[in-house]
Computed example of a mutant assay.
Amino acid sequence: MTTRIRGVLAPVLTPFNRRLEPDVNRFIAHCRWLIDNQVSLAIFGTNSEAASLSVNERLSMTDALLSAGIPAARMMPGTGGCSLADSVILTKHAVENGALGALMLPPFYFKGVSDEGLYAYYSEVIERVGSDRLKVYLYHIPQLTQVPITLNLIETLRKRYPDTVVGAKDSSGDWPNTKAMIDNFAKDGFDVFPASESTLSKALPLGAAGCISATVNMNPGGIHALYQGCNSAQGETLQANADVIRKIFQAVPMIPAMKRVVAEFSADPGWQVVRPPLVGLDDSTAQGVLTALRDAQFTMPGYPGR
C-alpha cells in the first residue's frame, strides 16, 4: 500500500533572480529549511507563483530538488492547469520521480463549466498518466479560479477512481465547505487539507489530514507544533500563536510580503523579487509587517543567509 502524505505542507515560495528566472540555489535552500522544520513541500502552488511558471521551469526545478537530495516522498507538486497536455506532462513527471501526490487545479480559463467537463479533464489526466501510483489531490480555490470543486464532483471522481483521487486542498476560506468535505468523505479515506492553520484545531478532530498553508513558508516550526499538539494542554496557546502570525501576513498581499520577510531574515535582498504581474511590497507596508512581526517575537531560526 502506498504511503499517503499527511501533516503540514508549504506551498513553497519561488525565488527569482534579477532577470526574473527561477533561482534554483535559493529554492533548494528554502526547501531544505522547510524539510528540516518537519514540514513537506507543495511545490508549485498558488503562493509559488506557479501560474507564472512554464512547464519546463517546473520540471527543471523539480529535478534540481531531487538532485540536491530533497526527498520526493515529501513533495506534492502542483500539476493542474488550463492545458490538459501540460497537466499530463507535469503529473507523469511527479509520479515517475516518486512524489506521493499531485495537487491539481481545475482548468480555470473557461468559467461556468459543468462538473461533467471537470470530470472529463481529471479523468483524461488520470488515464493518460496510467499509473496506480498516482494520487490526485483536488485543489479548490474558487476565489481565483472561479471553477469550484463541488462535493458532487468529488463523489463522482471517487466512484470511478477511489484509489487515485484521494484528497483535496480547500482554499475557499469557507469553513462550512471544508467541514462538508471532511464530513462527507474523510471516513472513506479522502484526505482534506484546509489552506489555513487557523482552522487546524477544529478540522483535525473531525478527520482533516493536516493543512497546506502559505504561512508554513514563514512559520513551519510553529505550525508543525500546532499540528502535533493541538489537542494537548498547550493546544490553545499553539493555535493562538500561529493565528497571530497568520493574521499579519493575510492583512497584506501575501506573496510579496512573505518574500520581503524572507529577504529580511536571510539578509538577501534578492528574495524580494516577484514575477510580473505581481509587484513587490512597498517600503511603508513592508515596515508595518516587520514591526508587527517583531512585536509578535517572530523568528525564522536557522534560516540560511547570504
Rank of each mutant, 00 (worst) to 15 (best):
S201H: 07
Y137A: 06
K202H: 05
T150G: 08
G167F: 02
I141S: 07
P194W: 06
P142F: 10
L151A: 15
R160L: 01
G173I: 04
W175V: 01
V129D: 02
K187G: 14
I141G: 07
K187M: 08
N177K: 15
A186Y: 04
F190Q: 05
G167S: 02
F190D: 04
D174I: 14
T199P: 00
V147N: 05
D132P: 10
K159C: 08
P148K: 12
L157Y: 06
I126D: 06
D163E: 15
S171R: 05
K159A: 15
S196E: 14
M181V: 02
T150E: 10
S196W: 12
K169F: 03
T156Y: 02
K135M: 08
F190P: 03
G189T: 04
A168D: 04
Y161P: 00
Q143V: 14
N184P: 07
R160V: 08
L144F: 14
D174H: 15
S171P: 01
F185C: 03
L200C: 01
A186C: 04
L134C: 05
V147E: 05
K159W: 11
D188P: 01
D163F: 11
T164E: 04
D132Y: 09
H140A: 02
N152P: 00
E127M: 12
S201F: 05
P162K: 13
P162L: 10
N177T: 15
V166K: 03
S172Y: 05
L200A: 03
K179T: 06
H140E: 07
S131K: 08
D191E: 11
S131H: 10
R133W: 03
E127Y: 13
D174A: 13
V165H: 06
P142K: 11
S198C: 13
T156R: 15
D163R: 13
K169D: 01
R160K: 14
R160S: 09
D132A: 11
P142Y: 11
A195E: 06
V136K: 06
V165A: 06
Y137K: 00
G189H: 03
F185R: 04
V147C: 06
